[in-house]
Structures are given as structure tokens and as C-alpha cells.
Design a protein around this nucleic acid. Sequence first.
DNA 1: CATCCTATGTATAAGCG
DNA 2: TCGCTTATACATAGGAT
Lengths: 206, 206
Amino acid sequence: MGRKKVEIKRISDKSSRQVTFSKRRSGLIKKAREISVLCDVQVALLVFSARGRLYDFSAGAGSLTEILKRYRSHTEAEASKAVNDAESTNDEVAAICPTVLLQIVQRFVVENPADVQLTLDDFVLLEEQLDLALKLIRARKMELMLQPLKTLQEEETKLKEENEVLKQQIAAAMEEDAGDETNAAMGTIGGSENDPVRPETLQLLL
Amino acid sequence: MGRKKVEIKRISDKSSRQVTFSKRRSGLIKKAREISVLCDVQVALLVFSARGRLYDFSAGAGSLTEILKRYRSHTEAEASKAVNDAESTNDEVAAICPTVLLQIVQRFVVENPADVQLTLDDFVLLEEQLDLALKLIRARKMELMLQPLKTLQEEETKLKEENEVLKQQIAAAMEEDAGDETNAAMGTIGGSENDPVRPETLQLLL
DNA sequence: CATCCTATGTATAAGCG
DNA sequence: TCGCTTATACATAGGAT
């Protein structure tokens, strides 16, 4: 739809590719909005440009986040498996979070105006989804953070060990040195062939 | 685009709504595929029909799952940023437990039979709050994990510095030792008052 | 329902500022 | 990079099968 028919293949010219992207993106979003309204459906659209920029859109009941959650719950088989794995590796994670939120939720519960009816199932589903999302994120974050942490711990151990060796080396050096002095005091004079602290040995340590 | 111009509003007739959905859905997917190819971008499209049926589509590099993952990681940065803002403005808001919150939500569900009446807006609010909780938990978790990480990094730095000092100490010891020997060779005999390596100094380092 | 048809409304490729 | 215009290609509403 334009002056010329265009083949559906990657537009080689960067500039016109960008222009086309911009135009078609808005067209696509418009269409998405229309079908959402006309047909009363939820639509979520994610577009990542080649340069990594994100363009997202959603229409219909609920935010993009909610739609994605709904999608995830559709994929529950995999999800619950992932969650099980996450839970078994992450038991200690339990503990913290916000108080005001609790107050808000409680106040909401108490003050709820009452117009629309929600079924118990709807509510349960919501709770499950939120909980599921929380677990998945927890597991993923954990994994990402645990990795560098572990590396650092290993490094620390290594450094401590090295430190220990150095200390012992010094202690040994002192002792050997003390021995030399005794010899010197006993009358052994002259350039010593055996250094109190052997450079070669130390070089290895340094 | 059709015999008549159509207003963009929910099609009341169920049958034609379904027909339109089917037609426009394929059109939308076609467009999505086209922009993906033409402009070399990733596209993910999720559609939930009113009856809960899912139609998904993705094009470009990576599966739908991968695109969603990418979306999540894209979102996490903003989320934690938003949370930081929230936290800095609300210091006293600091800590609740997700377990408690979930218990409350669950209890609410259990103690309220199917006659609970909530407005849609209220429902959205509740969802948002729960989502916020999730974000706060995420941020708090981050903080907790970051702290030991930081500590370890500091510790590493300290150990490295200490190592450095120890090495220098050894080097100094060797030099001083070499000096003593020179003196001895030059005829200076007897117990030395100044140890090549001073114990007190080392003690501080050890 | 799904497909095909066709008159029409829309999206958009080019091009200009 | 953006907006605006125009000529065209496309999508699709309504209808038939």
C-alpha cells in the first residue's frame, strides 16, 4: 500500500528501514487497538528494534504486565516446574517487605466500595499468578546474584591462603635470620653464601 | 476498509464480532510478520479472546519466550529504579513480609464466599499493590544480596593491600639483611641490636 | 464457521519541506 | 528526524456459498 509494491524482505537502506519501521509500528499499534476494542479482547504487543529499543503496547482489560502474567499462567506446566526448582534452591530467601502496602491492602479490603462482582476463582487466580511471578523473579535474581558472589568468595579464600603463606614465609625468614645472628655472634665472619632469606624462594611467592 | 466505514467500538453482535476477530487477527499477525522482516526487529504479539483463548505470535530473532525474557530484563531496570524512588520518598515504609501479605490475601479469599463485591477499579488497585509488593521485595532482596557482595569486595581489596604490604615488608627485610651482611663482611661483629625484621612491626601486620 | 468475492476504506511508499 | 501529501497497494465489511 504505497506508490509501489514492496517485497517483504529486509529493507537494506538503513534510513528508509527506520522510516518504514516508524510508520508501520504506529500502524500495527493502531490495528492492535482496534481489534481490542472491536472484538473485546486483550492484546499485548512487544517490539524490539535492532538497536535494542523496546516499544510496547497493550490494550483491553489490564496492563501489559497483567497480560503477560496471564500468558505465563497459560504456560503453567513449565512455570511450576521452574518454580519448584527455584524453591528447593531458595528456601532461605523468605523474609522482608513493605508495611504500608499491607495497610493499603487492608484498607482496601475494608473500604471496598462494591459495584462489580468478582468471583472467588478470579481472585484466587490473581493471587496465584502474582505468587508465581514472584517466585520466578526470585529464582532468576538469585541465580544472577549468586554467581558473582560465589566467585568473590572463592577469590577471598585464595587470597587468605596466599596471605597465610606469606606470613609463614616471614616467620621462617625471621627464624633463619636469628640463626645467622647467632652464628655471627659465635665468630663466623664473612660474606654468607646462603642468604637468610632466599630471593628465589621469595620470588616465587611474590 | 470494507463496504462501510466501521466505528471503532465493541461490535455488539456476537457472531460478526467473532468474524471480525478472526479476520483482523490474521491481518494483525501478517502486519507483525511484515514489520519484523522489513525492519529486522523482534515482535511478540499476545491476544486473549474474551473466552480466554490465547493466540500468540512472534517473529524475528528468538522465540516468543525469549522475547518475553528480554522484555522482563528490560523492565527490571526501570522497576528497581521506580522502587528506589518509592523507598527514598517513604523511608518508614520499609519492611513487610510477603508471607504475611499472602496470608492476608488468602484469608480474605477464604473468608469471603462468592458474594464478595469489588469494583473493577478496586481489583486493579489491589493488583497494582500486590505488584508493588513484588517490586519492593525484589529491591529489598537486591539490597540484601548486594550488601554481602560489597562487603566481600571491600574485604578483597583489604586483603590485597595487606598482601602488598607484606611483600614490601619481605623485600625490605631482604635488603636490610643484605646490609647487615655487608657490615659483617666489613668487620662489624657481634649481636645486632636492630633485627633485620622487627618483630613488633610484623606483629602489627600479622 | 471458513472461503471466496468485490466495493471501499485504510495504510503506507515516495517525495517534499 | 519529523510532518504532510498523494497515489497506490492492501485489508476488510458485508454478502454469498
